[in-house]
């Protein structure tokens, strides 16, 4: 089994991390458009996990059957499926692969739920180390304000309601996300996450991202035909 950092593939892997409302998905979409127009073979790694694993995860959430350990393990199972059947084959084929959220999301969530930090890191040791990991740093209030204008109501696990942080979902969400931010901040030096100031104008953030990505693509082959 190849461990984190051991993989050598012709393709490149760029991932974005950050709390909900940090604007990371918007930035990743813009990056995708740009890479495509530059002629790179770029693909989003969709969270197309096997229906078997997906059904178990969905049912576990719907019926609120998950405790921290099983929440952690079923998501790791789902992610393993994605790595084995999607990310690795794409990277072998030389694609530029983009992921919206990666193992760092799991580290932040699982540790906030009380799982041992080293255990969670070991659990995901099979993951491919990204070429660059972008972390969109944003104050909690800014992110929450963006979310409230865009959607209504948080789901049970999304708001960390399983942790009994608060009776009110909005309040629970705020406390939970605050702890997630603390975990992200610890991971910035640990995993050399590239922090982007997510309060800057969208254009400014995108230009920083493109510069960093460009530098890492110097030797990557440009596929003539996009996959």
């Amino acid at each position: 089994m190849k461990r984190y950092g051991d993989h050598r593939f012709p393709g490149k892997l760029f991932i974005v991390e950050g709390i909900d409302g940090s604007g990371k998905s918007t930035q990743l979409n813009l990056l995708y458009q740009w890479l495509q127009s530059e002629g790179y073979g770029v693909v989003f790694s969709e969270w197309n996990s096997s229906p078997l694993v997906r059904d178990v995860t969905r049912r576990g959430k719907k019926k609120r059957m998950l405790v921290p350990s099983t929440f952690s393990l079923i998501h790791a199972t789902d992610f393993a499926d994605r790595v084995e059947h999607n990310i690795i084959p794409l990277l072998k084929a030389g694609a530029v692969v983009l992921c919206d959220r990666y193992i760092y999301t799991a580290f932040a969530r699982d540790v906030t739920r009380g799982m041992d930090p080293q255990w969670v890191r070991e659990l995901y040791a099979f993951a491919v180390k990204p070429t660059v990991s972008f972390y969109f740093r944003v104050p909690l209030e800014v992110a929450t304000k963006r979310l409230h204008s865009g959607r209504n109501g948080f789901k049970f696990y999304e708001a960390g309601m399983d942790l009994d942080l608060a009776d009110d979902p909005d309040e629970s969400f705020r406390v939970f996300q605050g702890r997630i931010v603390d975990e992200y901040e610890k991971m910035v030096p640990e995993f050399e996450l590239t922090a982007i100031d997510a309060t800057l104008p969208i254009e400014e953030q995108q230009s920083q991202m493109r510069q960093i990505v460009k530098a890492r693509l110097a030797q990557a082959k440009r596929l003539r035909v996009a996959p």
């Binding site: 089994m1 078997l52 393993a80 790595v83 084995e84």
Partner: peptide, 14 residues
């Protein structure tokens, strides 16, 4: 259905 080896292992761990 085929699951990868790591996936299968983690499914059992779950």
């Amino acid at each position: 259905h085929t699951l990868g080896r790591i996936t299968q292992t983690l499914f059992y761990a779950t």
